[in-house]
């Protein structure tokens, strides 16, 4: 069975200082960031983080009146050649996997690229990856811990 990994999503208002406050809270508690992306619309944004201790990170943020939740996402390593990502995405599209969002991470340990993928229905993503025998990665593969 392919494993999902935990990603933290934090609601942010679109104003100066928001990101700095949130990252400050995590730094103070010794939480290490592995990947980060920010999605935004006009007035607010969502900060998405892969960290070494997601459970603790959510606890820290919620204690400080932040809206933060854990989402299940998949980390998929992408073949390092032209068209590598394209093949993966084509395959998911053929299997009707509805991708909500994705972003990439580069691992400093093995130099590989990983895609963090969030699907509307995480099981459809797992099934498609399993069917096509695609490698998925856990924290260890990504050089966390």
């Amino acid at each position: 069975m392919k494993k999902t990994i935990d990603q933290i999503s934090v609601f942010m208002e679109n104003r100066p200082g928001q990101l700095s406050e949130i990252l400050g809270l995590l730094a103070k508690e010794n939480i290490n960031l592995r990947a980060l992306t920010v999605a935004e619309v006009a007035e607010y944004g969502v900060l998405r983080l892969i960290v070494d201790d997601p459970e603790k990170a959510v606890k820290v943020l919620v204690a400080e009146q932040r809206v933060a939740v854990v989402n299940k996402v998949m980390a998929v390593s992408v073949p390092d050649r032209p068209g590598g990502l394209c093949e993966l995405i084509n395959m998911l599209a053929e299997d009707n996997v509805d991708i909500e969002y994705m972003y990439s991470v580069f691992s400093k340990t093995d130099g590989r690229a990983y895609m963090i993928i969030s699907a509307k229905d995480v099981n459809s993503l797992i099934n498609s990856l399993t069917k096509h025998n695609i490698d998925t990665d856990d924290y260890n593969d990504m050089g966390i811990n």
Binding site: S9, F11, A39, V41, Y44, V46, V69, E100, S118
Partner: peptide, 13 residues
């Protein structure tokens, strides 16, 4: 926004 309402996605908000 309440924590329970926020599922982590922009489209949800």
């Amino acid at each position: 926004l309440g924590a329970e309402d926020f599922a982590g996605s922009l489209s949800r908000i």
